[in-house]
Simulated assay, not measured.
Amino acid sequence: MSSYRDKLDLESCRERLKDLETVREEILKIAREVRINATKAIASIHARKSPENFIDAAVECFKKLKSYEPRFPELYHPLAHDAEQELVEAMVLRDIIEKRFDFSITLNVKPSAFVTGLADVIGELRRYVLTCLIGGDFEESRNFMELMEEIYANLLQFVELPDKLVPGLRRKLDVARSAIERTKSDYIAAKVARFHESLGRNR
């Protein structure tokens, strides 16, 4: 750790900043690969396909990304957050669909990325519920809606933290609350439609 006795001059500043410029591009490139694979994993889940290949690829990229943290924390923390968050989102959604999510994750991400990634899962669950409703699977839809509510309720404890610690969480939870209410309305509408459909068949 630097102390007030350490010598700092313009030349050493220039060298460090030039290094940071190069490393910044490397971090951005790897973070982009993490996000691309995480996005593909989520798309696979919604398509009812295995996301494992994409999640594995995202995790491998994340390991490379994480190696920059000890040496370049001033770059890693602001540039890697979104990648960490999206990887959390993909892994949590996978665990939920496979019925093994327990509000934890085996991944060395920052707490803020876990919390905000979990908030984004609520929107993905809405998409999944709508697909279930189209298929007439009301029991599965209800189970996922209950989990949406549970995730939301558990995340409310973090709302009072400064936005610098959990970037965008308040906005994400506002969006999540709206998604939950709209999903409930869609569920009721689908149930009513199914009821009228059954009446028509029985006439």
Rank of each mutant, 00 (worst) to 15 (best):
D82K: 01
K40L: 14
D56E: 15
G117S: 12
R182S: 06
D19W: 03
I30Y: 08
G135L: 14
R171S: 06
V192D: 10
R94K: 15
V192N: 03
S12V: 15
L130P: 02
A47E: 08
K7P: 06
D9E: 11
P73T: 00
D163V: 02
D95S: 08
A90W: 06
E60G: 08
E160A: 09
A90S: 08
L147V: 14
E69D: 08
V59K: 07
P111I: 01
G117A: 14
R24P: 08
E69Y: 09
P167H: 02
L165A: 14
D163K: 03
R35L: 10
R177C: 03
D137T: 05
D19N: 14
H81F: 04
E15N: 13
F62I: 14
V92A: 07
A179G: 04
V109Q: 08
H81Q: 01
G135H: 13
F195W: 10
K49R: 14
H81V: 03
P73A: 00
G135D: 11
G123M: 02
V192C: 03
L165C: 04
S50T: 14
E74G: 03
S2I: 15
E181P: 02
V121P: 07
P73H: 00
L79F: 00
F62T: 12
L107C: 02
I45W: 02
K63M: 09
L8M: 15
E15S: 07
M148Q: 09
R35H: 13
L156R: 10
R100C: 07
L65E: 07
T106P: 06
K64R: 14
K40W: 05
L87A: 09
K63L: 08
Y187K: 01
R5P: 11
I151C: 06
L165Y: 04
Q85R: 11
A113V: 05
R171Q: 05
R201H: 03
S3T: 15
K40V: 02
P51K: 02
D137M: 11
P111M: 05
L10G: 12
E150C: 09
R100K: 00
N202K: 00
L65D: 04
A57R: 12
F72N: 06
R201W: 08
F138N: 09
I97W: 09
F54W: 13
V192A: 03
R14N: 06
N108H: 09
C13P: 03
K191R: 15
L65G: 04
P51H: 02
I96P: 15
F158T: 00
E11H: 11
K49W: 06
E149Y: 09
D186G: 15
Y4M: 11
E69F: 07
L165Q: 01
S112A: 08
K66Y: 04
R177I: 05
G117Q: 10
E181N: 15
Y187T: 10
L8A: 13
D6Y: 06
P51N: 00
S185W: 10
L155P: 11
